[in-house]
Design a protein around this nucleic acid. Structure first.
Lengths: 153, 153
DNA sequence: GCGTTTTCTGGAATGATTCCAGTAAACAGG
DNA sequence: CCTGTTTACTGGAATCATTCCAGAAAACGC
């Protein structure tokens, strides 16, 4: 089992959340792997604690996201992904081919698009920017079947 | 049945797509209702043609989106929505409470965030901006019915 | 410790979307 | 106009991420 960060315990207490093994393990899992899916987290936590129910993980992810300790992002057509980097204005690049996600710091200063011109009377509280494209690996390979042909055309 | 636009027929031909009743009806359905879900479209097309299979509609939506005649957007936690407004750089506001979607023209000129600072070697081809908040109706009402009024610690 | 409250377990359910095999319709060519 | 090939549509079943449910187990306040 991985080292338990005392900070995480305090972080949970601060938000009025109970400190449970599952929650600490979920936080630990996301320390290691950025942008993990719920399924990834389930596997990590099982490696860590031995066993957890899928629902416990979903519960944790929901509670931690609601408390602002995690950020949840859901690229169209892909399962949701979770990350510990919260509270800053950063965005994401998603690979159309393999679904991999990476962080992107905002181009235009702090929160450029947060005040849209015409928001139709909506009370806007968040601007979410997602870039779509191909990750370096997928951009290099012609076929997605992962065939390392060592030719440079 | 609604008026068949000759333009739609030409639009389909231009992209090398077969002209079918279902496809025309889907295009017509989206003329009337912006940001419709697949389910909305099924209902519209059934009102229009009498009957369609759900899969026919999904097929049409996919073919038309792939051909660039429709744009598909998928707000996290909500079913996908389709619109005919394509080819321009416009974004969306989504209501957290009722899921309603509205168009937003880009604040910063044409395509502000399309060239992120550090894209980790990704070949980016699209920047998608989604604003989250409350629509005028939901912002006015305190609690619709049984909604998560969440925080009272 | 003890009781109350919240969380975890396991199983079943949901909702959007896709897969599949067969039938029907669309277009090209004669 | 008729025919063949290609592509789309039908209906039903399947999939996948996520949620709902009821009971058992753990967490925290006293």
């Amino acid at each position: 089992m991985t080292t338990t960060s005392t900070d995480d315990v305090m972080l949970l207490r601060d938000r009025g959340l109970r400190v449970t093994g599952a929650r600490l393990a979920v936080l630990r899992a996301l320390d290691g792997h950025q942008h993990s899916t719920a399924d990834d987290v389930v596997r990590s936590v099982r490696d860590d604690l031995g066993s957890v129910s899928v629902q416990a993980v979903y519960d944790c992810l929901r509670a931690l996201s609601a408390a602002g300790l995690l950020r949840r992002m859901e690229p169209a057509g892909h399962p949701a992904r979770y990350e510990r980097r919260v509270g800053d204005n950063h965005h994401h690049v998603v690979c159309r081919a393999c679904g991999v996600v990476a962080d992107v710091d905002c181009t235009v200063g702090a929160a450029p698009c947060l005040v849209p011109n015409d928001s139709h009377g909506f009370v806007v509280d968040l601007a979410e920017v997602t870039f779509w494209g191909l990750c370096p690996a997928c951009a290099a390979e012609p076929a997605p079947a992962a065939e390392p042909s060592s030719n440079t055309p």
